[in-house]
């Protein structure tokens, strides 16, 4: 199965750098930045492009900092699976 693609947007000025999102992320997508925001907190940044959009980070964030996106897989819908040719053949169409 194709990997689900997700992404997040971080409102860095509201982040308090508590690191709970780093601990909750199963992918290791997040890390602390080297810079501080206006409040003086080391905010969170994305360091890997492997987010799956599971929203774990947003669920544990006490300051409602993170918005999570997940790519809808409409474009890659499987329409037919043809068996017994020489191998399996999967046909897909793009919308």
């Amino acid at each position: 199965m194709a990997k689900v693609k997700g992404d997040i947007v971080i409102d860095i000025e509201k982040c308090k750098g508590c690191e709970l999102c780093i601990a909750a992320c199963p992918q290791g997508t997040l890390e602390k930045s080297k810079h501080v925001n206006q409040k003086g907190y080391l905010y969170i940044v994305k360091v890997e492009d492997n987010c799956t959009g599971c929203a774990n980070c947003a669920l544990v964030c006490p300051d409602a900092v993170i918005t999570v996106y997940r790519q809808t897989s409409k474009a890659k819908q499987q329409v037919a699976k043809i068996s017994n040719v020489t191998g399996d053949l999967t046909v897909t169409v793009k919308e």
């Binding site: 992404d7 959009g53 929203a55 947003a58 900092v65 918005t67 999570v68 996106y69 997940r70 790519q71």
Partner: peptide, 12 residues
């Protein structure tokens, strides 16, 4: 970018 409104799974 996949950060478009249609793709939101969580927002505050």
């Amino acid at each position: 970018s996949i950060c478009i409104n249609d793709n939101i799974v969580y927002e505050a």
